[in-house]
Design a protein around this nucleic acid. Structure first.
Length: 379
DNA sequence: CACGAGTTTCCTGATT
DNA sequence: TAATCAGGAAACTCGT
């Protein structure tokens, strides 16, 4: 699979807009939990790379009382961002905890995240004291752990309230007029995710029973491999002869038969160009993962192409989506002049004459930054 | 059920 | 050379 390179330029989101920018915790509030340098990079909510950019922690440090075997980085998934708390599984809860700690500037390795391997339902039902209790440890100053527990409890309930607000919102993403810019929020994957469950199957990404039931090979490579016509042999080894045979019998062009998931009803959503327009008009995604290159002419650039593709896949309930496939869908819109290619510029595309309305008086939300700065100066 | 539009999942070849 | 882009081919989904 091709891994598309990302542009090396600095992310504008880090400079101009950060909806979740936390107030760094004062060192003396959490000093027991901290050691060495605070490794967290505040900022881009959607940057998986952020989590890769940590210096390796000193696992054998005596102060590091919680983590012995497993790096929480290996745990980290961002699925929780697209679910309501009630739908979180154990991994989602842990991932949220890691993210919350990092946003507070606390070293991920110094939080007892394994005490929170519980589903969202159980987490929601926990009382304040229960949460605080799970942060306590004989080697940790009780005042600090209590304070941390309280903060996490408050953050949890803020998230739960946010979920409730979104659920009650009349905004319906999939049915919205695709060419009408909604002022409230243009892309709301949380509510979409929840709404889909109302009328689709009982599909859950982690539902192994369902996976066993359905055609598991959305990855057509498996179909190719398992087909007797193309198989390497039962033990998976390739002798010289078989290697030659494989060269002779190339996979036929086109999508392999049976590569769709027949048990899953994909939700009807907006088209690819409308999806892109919506991202560009939503400060949650622009300019952090996609941004205007030249708003007047409708040129835009993928800042994090893989993240955009992932979001698209999330919306279509397709975990196998890649930027390669997403960009193919985009290229089909060249024919109708909905999108136009921008030669020589990589990761830059343009809305064409038949493209969606992308009017905005604040491309890339630069004004947010200005107002932000003004407020900062006054405070 | 048929059909068409849009999408997904492959591929090859050209370009950067 | 690898990454990206362009577009063919065929299967698939969904609405009409």
């Amino acid at each position: 699979m091709i891994d598309y390179a990302r542009p090396c330029e600095q992310n504008m989101c880090d400079l101009y807009f950060n909806p979740t920018q936390p107030v760094p915790a004062r060192l003396d509030d959490f000093q027991v939990f901290r050691k060495g340098t605070a490794s967290h990079i505040y900022g881009n909510y959607y940057t998986a790379a952020t989590y890769d950019s940590y210096a390796e922690p000193e696992i054998d440090n005596a102060a590091n009382v919680y983590h012995t075997l497993v790096s929480c980085r290996e745990y980290y998934r961002d699925d929780w961002k697209y679910k309501i708390v009630l739908d979180w599984n154990e991994d989602d809860t842990v991932s949220w905890m890691i993210d919350t700690m990092q946003c507070m500037g606390i070293n991920e390795y110094e939080v007892p995240f394994h005490n929170f391997r519980i589903c969202g339902m159980d987490l929601r039902n926990m009382k304040r004291e229960d949460v605080i209790q799970r942060f306590s440890h004989p080697n940790i100053d009780p005042l600090s752990s209590r304070r941390l527990g309280e903060i996490v409890f408050d953050k949890l309930h803020a998230k739960i309230n946010e979920d409730m607000f979104r659920q009650s919102s009349i905004f319906r993403y999939a049915e919205s007029d695709p060419y009408q810019h909604n002022e409230q929020t243009v892309l709301d994957l949380d509510s979409l995710d929840h709404k889909n469950r109302l009328y689709t199957s009982d599909y859950k990404p982690n539902d192994s029973s369902l996976l066993a039931n359905c055609d598991s090979s959305d990855d057509a490579e498996d179909v190719f491999r398992s087909s007797p016509e193309y198989s390497y042999g039962s033990d998976g080894s390739k002798s010289g002869d078989e290697d030659d045979k494989r060269k002779m019998m190339k996979r036929p062009p086109g999508r392999p038969k049976g590569s769709g998931r027949k048990t899953l009803k994909r939700p009807r959503s907006v088209s690819v160009p409308e999806f892109l327009r919506n991202l560009l008009l939503d400060p949650k995604f622009c300019p952090s993962i996609i941004k205007w290159e030249d708003h007047v002419t409708g040129k835009f650039r993928f800042v994090k192409p893989d993240e955009v593709a992932k979001l698209w896949g999330k919306m279509k309930q397709n975990d196998n989506m890649t930027f390669e496939k997403f960009s193919r869908a985009m290229r089909y819109h060249y024919r109708q002049s909905v999108l136009v290619s921008v030669p020589t510029a990589r990761l830059v595309y343009q809305f064409g004459s038949k493209g969606p309305d992308f009017k905005t008086d604040n491309p890339n939300f630069v004004k947010v930054k200005t107002e932000f700065d003004m407020n900062d100066m006054h405070s």
